[in-house]
Nucleic acid binder design. Sequence first.
DNA 1: CGGGGAGTTGATAGGTATCAATGCAAGTGG
DNA 2: CCACTTGCATTGATACCTATCAACTCCCCG
Lengths: 246, 246
Amino acid sequence: MSASANSIPDSYTCISCRANKLCLPQCLDDICPSDMRARIVKQQRLLQRGDYLFRENDDFQEIYAICHGSIKTSLIGSDGILQITGFHITGEILGLDGIEKRKHAINAITLETTTVCVIPYNQLEELSNRENTVMRNLLAVMTSQIDANQNEIMSVVGNRNASGALASFLCALSRRYAANGEQETEFYLPMSRNDISNYLGLAKETISRLFTRFEDDGLIDFYQKQIRLLNLKKLANLAGHPEPSR
Amino acid sequence: MSASANSIPDSYTCISCRANKLCLPQCLDDICPSDMRARIVKQQRLLQRGDYLFRENDDFQEIYAICHGSIKTSLIGSDGILQITGFHITGEILGLDGIEKRKHAINAITLETTTVCVIPYNQLEELSNRENTVMRNLLAVMTSQIDANQNEIMSVVGNRNASGALASFLCALSRRYAANGEQETEFYLPMSRNDISNYLGLAKETISRLFTRFEDDGLIDFYQKQIRLLNLKKLANLAGHPEPSR
DNA sequence: CGGGGAGTTGATAGGTATCAATGCAAGTGG
DNA sequence: CCACTTGCATTGATACCTATCAACTCCCCG
């Protein structure tokens, strides 16, 4: 299970990776079964907590898939206030924000030690000229991102009350871990309370209070950044509609 | 220059339309100058206020560009509560939400009498097999949508206070009208106060109060759905976000 | 062992939802 | 042409929720 800096990711990683439709399209298996990964996935890159994967205004040249770890994306408004726009975990794609303007529109900072697969975009385009499936898969990935963003708006805006927003956030995260084949009821929150509060547009104190209240209500169980969802159904319910009770 | 039900949209409409990169790629001019529009733009469709352009779960077959009018998109959560996810005005694209799953993910309802150009997606794909520019333009349109969604999240979530959210909403709309070459300081709000409140996650009474407060503060001037922005700078300031990014 | 950052808890003020009533405009039928 | 209806918008009073300020605890790391 080696994964040095320039190696090809081992098969387990690629199978569980949500980017595999991109860098491992089925049809390519027939065309170039042995060297295809090496052709598209340039390398694995290792990053330490707090490192930038890319910055706003950096030239766009690559797409990234997270092999292990997590990343937060942020944006600095003209008012100078930093706004976190999303969190990304293992198996998720990053960097598509730069395609249109050929410059990255957001910052990507790792939340912990993280490895990413680098997919050079020009090679992807080149490949897509010969193989339509590649471009189609790319489209699929992108539309799923649009979809995710829609749901994001939905869950955050729809929940003007703090408990709903947080519940929704936790449920969404749970779903994403489950999509990776990991436990959906118990996981590690790589981001700080402050990051969560920024992302949800709430005060960090409110997040703190909600965590303890959720625990009092038997919805969750947590110790620092480790969290266990005890009642997924009630949480989803909270996320769904604002209940005046309590 | 007629534009009856099945005709090709007249050149003015297409030039001002944001979809023209899609249905009128430059390179195609050389290949099939005369009949190209007819080949891709299937028809113009006329809709009355309240009509559905498409519904959640409808089979996805077409993309739409709004020639004239406006459309709101919405989504019904698992709790049965309707959430408005966006508003779309002349020159904007609709329907991309269905690409991935081949089914539309949201509802699209017209806010007034509206005409749309219909772009059959399979023809677009077919065309893109021969001409890479088409698919590339499609990608560009989609990424700009992702970008727009990011900004959407940014401006709504970042503005937990109601006045900022509404100011941001008005500024964004102003920018979009300006992008169409229309007046940026005076326009018609096709959606109801209730729609706005739903979209911004506020109570409709709050929207009402804010409109009058903005008027008292000399920021805007309005009569029913007609609105004039008197102080774009202060509004942008309130929104926190702002500045027509160039 | 001490310092500092992150997280928690408490008191208070302010903003917004909610409930309720009224105003207003367009459409309908007598 | 006018009363009536209906839906949408506005305005007011009150209660609740959350931001803010401040103090404190806990954990990590030097």
